[in-house]
Structure formats: C-alpha cells, structure tokens
C-alpha cells in the first residue's frame, strides 16, 4: 500500500485492517501521533486526512490510501510554527503534553473550516480528552490563533497587493 504522509510517499506492507495509527507509529516510527484509547473516544490519535481531523486508531490503513495525510510533524514543514502552535506557546497550554498533538490537529481543522469560532463552536468541535485539564487555555489559544491567522491573511493580502 502507498501512503502519502506530510508530502512524502511511503510503501507499507501490513494487514489492510491495521489501524492507520499503528502504521504511523510502529511501522513508520512517527511518534508525534499518540495512542490514548484505541476506540475513537479521546482524539489523541488525530491526524488530518484531506484536511479533515480524523481519529486514526480505528481507521483501517487501507482507507487512507490515496489521501493526503498530515500528522503533527507535518504541520510546519518549513520549521515556521503555525498560528495555532504559536498561540499554544503564548498561552502555555500543554501540561504533560500527551493529548496536545491531537488537540492541535483538531484546532487546525476547526480553524480551517471556521475562521472565527465562538465558544459554542469550540465546545462542539473540540471533543478530545485532556486528562491534565488544559481546556481553559486551549479555548483561549484557539481564539488567539484565529486572530493570528486573520493577521497573517491580511499581511499576505497586503504583500500580494503591492
């Protein structure tokens, strides 16, 4: 099977039913994507598949063939942090940090769909578990990231316009 992860192609030879999570972690040794529950309940294993935040612990690898997969490692290919990552640092969000790859992927996906989410929108779309309880700061950081993204877009428009 051919997988496209973070812009690179990988050939894997596993059972078609192996969840994508274990292919990423154990076959390809990309460990930023986490195992938390294995039953699509916690969101620790979230990656973007064609831009949509997807829990990979129950997704057969065969279902991801031919799609664009982006893991936490692929969010900032040039080393420049994304608006979400910057906001996460500004608000000092992570505690143990274990849930945060999944949280950040979920936040990126939310902002891709909804540039200026309300608290209600955040409640509805961020359903991941953080056992350390960093929810207050995640909420604040998502609002900040939305502002940062808007600023960046404006800047790009200006530069392009000139």
């Amino acid at each position: 099977m051919e997988l496209k992860i973070n812009g690179k192609s990988y050939t894997v030879n596993t059972e078609e039913s192996m969840p994508l999570l274990w292919v990423i972690r154990d076959e390809l040794n990309m460990t930023g994507t986490k195992y938390g529950c294995g039953v699509s309940s916690c969101g620790a294993c979230s990656v973007m598949i064609d831009g949509v935040a997807t829990r990979t612990c129950t997704l057969p690898v065969s279902a991801a063939v031919g799609k664009e997969i982006t893991t936490i490692e692929g969010l900032n290919p040039n080393g420049e942090l994304t608006a979400v990552q910057k906001a996460w640092i500004q608000h000092q969000v992570p505690q143990c940090g274990y849930c945060q790859s999944g949280m950040i992927v979920a936040a990126e996906a939310l902002l891709n769909e909804n540039a200026n989410p309300t608290d209600e929108d955040i409640n509805n779309s961020i359903t991941n578990i953080c056992r350390c309880g960093t929810y207050n700061r995640i909420r604040a950081a998502i609002h900040t990231a939305a502002e940062l993204r808007a600023l960046e877009t404006e800047l790009i428009k200006k530069v392009m316009g000139e």
Binding site: K34, L81, W88, I89
Partner: peptide, 21 residues
C-alpha cells in the same frame, strides 16, 4: 516563566515513554 518543555510539546517532538524507538 515560559516552560522549557512546551516548544517540543506543540510540534510532536517531545518523547514520551511510549515514543521510545
């Protein structure tokens, strides 16, 4: 003071026990 461990916890680089390879 900004925590020293946070930058690598937003990029997926922080290595937890389960990430040992």
């Amino acid at each position: 003071v900004a925590r020293l461990d946070i930058p690598e916890k937003v990029t997926g680089k922080a290595e937890f026990g389960l990430d040992v390879r």
